[in-house]
């Protein structure tokens, strides 16, 4: 194992770094996500969620999907995480730690059990599927120009619908959260 590692290291260091460039952020992603899920302090959970979003973005970039990675960072870190944090601050920041813990009571335990059953089933399918054993193909890239062409060509209707959805969500969120006038 160690000798193998050293051999790869000396033979082609760049290749090794390239592989770890995916694995390391993925490990950070899983650890941060796990910590975010079990954390009692909501703010810590939100910050760890932000970290896992960043790690996910780096995984995307490492896999060659630069554009998506940057969009992930921009939207999730810049907007979604901040909106979550903001709503935590707006809803009783003094009772942060009173949230019920994982695995206390029957219903949460059942939830965790369902989640792990799903995980076991998924892992079973993944490791038994012949498709998933495929080796990594040559590095692929998604040039921004091609993505732009696709967005404005084949997928233009989806893009417009997304725009309408976002506008509706913006207006809807503003209306829902608006202070009711007595």
């Amino acid at each position: 194992m160690v000798t193998d590692f050293l051999k790869t290291c000396c033979a082609d260091p760049m290749k090794l770094i390239g592989e770890w460039f995916v694995i390391l952020p993925a490990l950070v992603l899983l650890l941060a996500a796990a910590a975010a899920v079990v954390m009692r302090n909501l703010i810590h959970a939100a910050l760890l969620l932000t970290l896992s979003f960043i790690a996910l973005g780096i995984v995307f970039i490492a896999l060659g999907a630069e554009f998506v990675g940057f969009v992930q960072l921009l939207v999730y870190v810049g907007a979604v995480a901040m909106v979550i944090v903001f709503s935590i601050l707006l809803t009783k920041p003094d009772q942060l730690t009173k949230s019920r813990n994982l695995l206390s009571g029957f219903a949460p335990a059942a939830g965790v059990a369902v989640a792990f059953t799903a995980l076991a089933a998924l892992l079973g399918f993944i490791f038994s599927s012949p498709l998933a054993k495929k080796p990594m193909p040559a590095p692929a890239s998604a040039p921004v120009a091609a993505i732009g062409e696709a967005l404005m060509g084949d997928y233009v209707i989806a893009l417009i619908v997304l725009g309408i959805l976002l506008t509706a969500a913006l207006v809807g969120a503003a209306v829902i959260a608006m202070e009711d006038k007595p």
Binding site: L47, V77, G78, M82
Partner: peptide, 8 residues
């Protein structure tokens, strides 16, 4: 995207 980290 990177500049968004400042807010955090």
């Amino acid at each position: 995207a990177v500049g968004a980290g400042t807010e955090v």
